[in-house]
Amino acid sequence: MADFLMLSLVPLVVAVTISLTCALLGNFLVLRRQSLIGDAISHVALPGIVASFLITGTLAASAMMIGAGVAALVTVAMIELIKHLGRVESSAAMGVVFTAIFALGVLMLEWNDASGVHLDVEHALYGNLESLIWFEGVHWSSLFDPKALADLPPQLARVAWVGLMVLTFVVVAWRPLVVGSFDSAFAASIQARPVLTDLLLVIMVAITAIAAFDAVGSIIVIAMFICPAAAARLMTNHLGKQVAWSQVFALISAVLGYVLAGYGPGWIGFEASLSAAGMIASLTGLILLLACLFGPHRRRDGGQPASA
């Protein structure tokens, strides 16, 4: 059991928190047909971090966060610029920008041989959930021991703060988010500030992606932005219930994925563990697959004319 505390508790909590946070925001991304903005932003976190490392020379969390944040803002600004001034269709504009910035990141990494310092492409993509070890977590009593708690990996607190912030945002901005997602022209006419809401949503996505990046890598973030919310959409026609379903799905895939990756191979006789981030992403995809096949509201209603 002490093993669990030391090795598994923190990664599990981090994975669950990130999954819940991403899935919460994902509801709005999926409804606005902007799912891929999460994909784009997650890809550019690496270049931001590499750039900040090259400039500041440290791998301090704050410098990395700022670097990734700047990269995300630059990406969003460039996408908007190319979309509006260059009149390029939005998904193509997204594809142009995030691939180019990602390429720049990889080039900077290889050019300066920064790969030596635990920064590499693989880490960026699938994170290192398993490295979040709580050395002081030797016994259940450690949970109440301030000294032991101080030793918790810093990612845990970071992820928790971001989760809290996103939750607050969604609660406070619920109505503008809903109205703007459904009918942005109407939202503008009642001064619900759809453009501002849109921007804040993207900023929240960026912050979440960046906070998650270090701990769990980008692939799980992309999966969690899209799959649980998409699966939830197929379960219900009610927005509140959709959000609830997405949280349930995110929780199930995070917990089950972590357990399967860590202990699954052992059950079939292999002495190894698999990537937890990859397993969580795969599981949430599996849930979506099941929802696509059996979800009660999987098909469009089709606007059948009922009698007036």
């Binding site: 409804l31 459904f182 009918d183 022209a185 109407f186 006419s189 469009r300």
Partner: peptide, 14 residues
Amino acid sequence: YVPQRSSVDWDFPA
């Protein structure tokens, strides 16, 4: 303001 009916996604969960 009542926008054009076709300007919104009627598949929205509402």
